[in-house]
Amino acid sequence: MIETENLTRKFGGLTAVDNVTLRVNEGEVFGFLGPNGAGKTTTVRMLCCLISKTSGEARIAGYNVGNESDSLKIRKLIGLVPDNVGLYDDLSAYDNLDFYGKLYDCPDAQRKENIQRFLTLLGLWEKRDVMAGTFSKGMKQKLAIARALIHEPKLLFMDEPTANLDPESAKTVRDFILELKKEKRTIFLNTHNLDEAQRICDRIGILNTKLMATGTPRELERALSSGGGTRRTVVLLQERATDAVLAGLRRLSGNVTAEGNQLTIELKDPENENPAVIEAIAKAGGHIQSVTIAGASLEDVYLKLVREGES
């Protein structure tokens, strides 16, 4: 659905997006992770034909981004939830959607049906005649999502849809994205919420001007673990860890932390080193409840790649 090859955007001397090559498949939820200023919004704006690319190629559903005649076709195929919701405050929720439905050439019957459907799904139908300007942030965000879906686009770009929302509103939005995922819509999700990306996205791209990595959350975690990063063994004891237990473990690993009856030991090769860990605990009089191996988390991957990008 989306293909880019060395996509680059410069603003004067500043490179905002540097040679990004990626592919997003149809029906996939692709998370674009990166710190502020990483170029996520610029990438989305290029893909939505809102700003031009400096160099490289990008195609949406086979249409060329940057080609004048393809731009209108691309914009018809896509829906955009921008980082600023940009609703018309003096228009009702219904009128906001109606306006966009008309601009996307939705036939009357379909437009009315979609307005009702999406407002109902997002819990806004009862507020359809209320001015959008009086809505809370969460309600505005939901309305912006409904607006982006009014013409039932094949591809939806969402630029940090849960940023600045309270936890409940953020959950509603996330749940709605999961519903859209079930409908097999392709979603390109800009976010810096790692937990959100892990829960929602099929694949993730980590951007820091350059695309640092792409893959499923598991693939990224595995790649970091096997790439010389440390992994953790988490041991749950039946009692608080004694000094003797900690001393025994510190002979095996330089990084041991204890929190209540939970021990976290950083190891290079936990599969091979865990028997020694268990033995050391038992020798020091500790009683083990469970032992689990924790790989690198998506957060670890993200931070490692972002720091690498910065250095």
Binding site: L50, R75, L80, P82, V85, Y88, D89, Y100, L103
Partner: peptide, 14 residues
């Protein structure tokens, strides 16, 4: 001011 130009420009209008 209402930041509504971006979604408007994203529609298939010239």
């Amino acid at each position: 001011v209402e930041k509504s130009l971006e979604p408007l420009l994203a529609t298939p209008t010239t």
